[in-house]
């Protein structure tokens, strides 16, 4: 099974969100990720990094490492930072039943990440900082074409 991995390491701020989006878009294209899923991955990573720059680093420049990889047919994205510990349980979920104009602004980013990705986990340790792992299932090709041939293969039949 061919796997694919790309990493981006930067010391950045919100001004780097477009660059981060371009990195995910390019990795998706290179890994032949299902086009319908690419935007979801870009969006989830954008929201994750916005939260890091705003809350973990309080708007100051901070170190972020992004890893984009395929594991079988899944895309797994790992985002690491060394800012303030993030506690997802401390973020109240937006009350989606309330009319939008009555909802408090905020909390939507984390909600979107959970909506767009299949698995999401946050861990923090003083040694390694915040580690966010997000996965989206079944969006990578079964057997990516090799760069030498560029040959596309038919997708495998979905598992029952």
């Amino acid at each position: 099974m061919t796997s694919f991995r790309r990493e981006l390491h930067l010391v950045g701020t919100m001004a780097d969100l477009a660059r981060i989006g371009a990195f995910i878009e390019e990795a998706c294209a290179q890994a032949h990720i299902d086009p319908a899923a690419r935007f979801d991955l870009m969006m989830a990573v954008d929201e994750a990094c916005s939260n890091i720059f705003e809350h973990a680093y309080n708007g100051l420049a901070g170190e972020v490492t992004l890893r984009f990889e395929t594991r079988g047919r899944d895309v797994v994205i790992t985002v690491r930072d060394h800012g303030r510990a993030f506690d997802p349980d401390g973020v109240p979920p937006p009350d989606m039943a309330l009319p939008l104009e009555e909802r408090p602004i905020g909390g939507l980013g984390l909600h979107l990440m959970r909506q767009l990705m299949d698995d999401i986990s946050f861990t923090f340790s003083p040694e390694h900082g915040n580690i966010l792992v997000m996965a989206k299932h079944g969006v990578a090709p079964v057997d990516p074409p090799t760069p030498t041939t560029g040959r596309r293969r038919s997708p495998a039949r979905p598992k029952p």
Binding site: M43, D46, S50, I105, G109, L112
Partner: peptide, 13 residues
């Protein structure tokens, strides 16, 4: 081409 939750917050505001 792209709108995130911060952009949406501007619209709601």
């Amino acid at each position: 081409p792209f709108l995130d939750s911060a952009g949406m917050a501007v619209l709601v505001n």
